[in-house]
Write a protein that binds this DNA or RNA. Sequence first.
DNA 1: AATTCAAATGAAAAGTTCGTGAAAAATTGA
DNA 2: TCAATTTTTCACGAACTTTTCATTTGAATT
Lengths: 226, 226
Amino acid sequence: MKPKILIVEDEPSITDTIQYALETDGFDTVALSSGTAVIPLLSQDPVDLIVLDIGLPDINGLELCKTIRKAHDIPIIFLTARADEIDRVVGLEIGADDYLTKPFSPRELSARVKAVLRRTRRASPSTMSAPGFKVDESKRRISYFDKILDLSHYEFKILKTFIRRPGHVYSRDRLMDLVWEEPETSMDRTVDTHIKNIRAKLKTVKPDVDPIVTHRGMGYSLKEEL
Amino acid sequence: MKPKILIVEDEPSITDTIQYALETDGFDTVALSSGTAVIPLLSQDPVDLIVLDIGLPDINGLELCKTIRKAHDIPIIFLTARADEIDRVVGLEIGADDYLTKPFSPRELSARVKAVLRRTRRASPSTMSAPGFKVDESKRRISYFDKILDLSHYEFKILKTFIRRPGHVYSRDRLMDLVWEEPETSMDRTVDTHIKNIRAKLKTVKPDVDPIVTHRGMGYSLKEEL
DNA sequence: AATTCAAATGAAAAGTTCGTGAAAAATTGA
DNA sequence: TCAATTTTTCACGAACTTTTCATTTGAATT
């Protein structure tokens, strides 16, 4: 069962190099030279990881990433020519799983792919986990120290988002983007209130710890360890 | 630049074996026979990885691990005599980076050390580094000699700016431009005060050096080397 | 050594952001 | 439809951050 990697890159020479390196290291690969074809492909051909050039000519890579993330739970590694784009990519706005700045060695890319897969593999088979948490996607349930939480729709989605990347700091805006269908809706303390409710529910299980960390002026994250 | 490995193990024969194996493979080693000495040592002598026997007589290995993790961002490999302790170690509670059950071959340990170092070197995306600094953009954390700094929003951004270009001298105005959303609000000693606070926090980690250099009449920069 | 002036410092004031409870609005489902 | 539940809004106090300012320190120049 080789993992399948989708490469989205408009320059053939780079695509070739990557493809060769990844296949040598035991991956299956598919390559696309345009961003618009990604979504249609994903819906019929599941892949395990996407290597995405954000400097594509036909589409904004960041937007594409958002779109992918809306519907799929696939790790994404970014390629970028400009080092200063990195902040937005890796930081709050998008949440890439990793990135590489051109030029890079194919070997390095392959190593990153392996690392990201190793990291997310554990998480994927429908029970993702962070300290004490288990997510059962099919039953739409999250348990916390083996106690099933009674969560509302939004609470579930927010908590799932946190669990997917423990330690990652999500701004309120970013959470809105990820969790809400229509993120434009003006919000005041909406996210805060949901966090409050989630915290209250977690507290009934473990009264002495709060696994949700507030980062003043930045957002919230889940503790990586208790 | 050999990576330095700290070995915490109470049985001298094992310590010797490990030490020999690791040094043969090009690592620097330090050994401690008691757990209580670990924290004091870490604060003055940064190491790259810890090999920790959880069956130490003087201290609970799991607790020690937690304590280390509180303040430092160092990978840990566990040694244990009892295979059934492993579950708790590798599972959610602690998050060891790897483990070995006694008896093990020194060669095996050395291989694991290399693997963990390789993995963690790359693990966190976006770790820019300057002398002793690591920036994890996604977790909004900066560590200084592996100690995680507790920084406010502006402190984080200012320090990140410095780390991006060690040695580069930033005027107060330039810093304002780069870090503040609305730089028009020019005030007098604002930047100075933030620098003061950052310095204070860095000092708690390394009291004897000040990595921030003042350039009279010009601005501030970060030392390129300590 | 004296002078000068930028920088460091401590402390207080001003300004933000968060957590919270309660109530209003929207949604769901019987 | 109506009641129950979920989601959003809002206002307030507490906690924390940022800014201001007066004073001291200290480096460079004379």
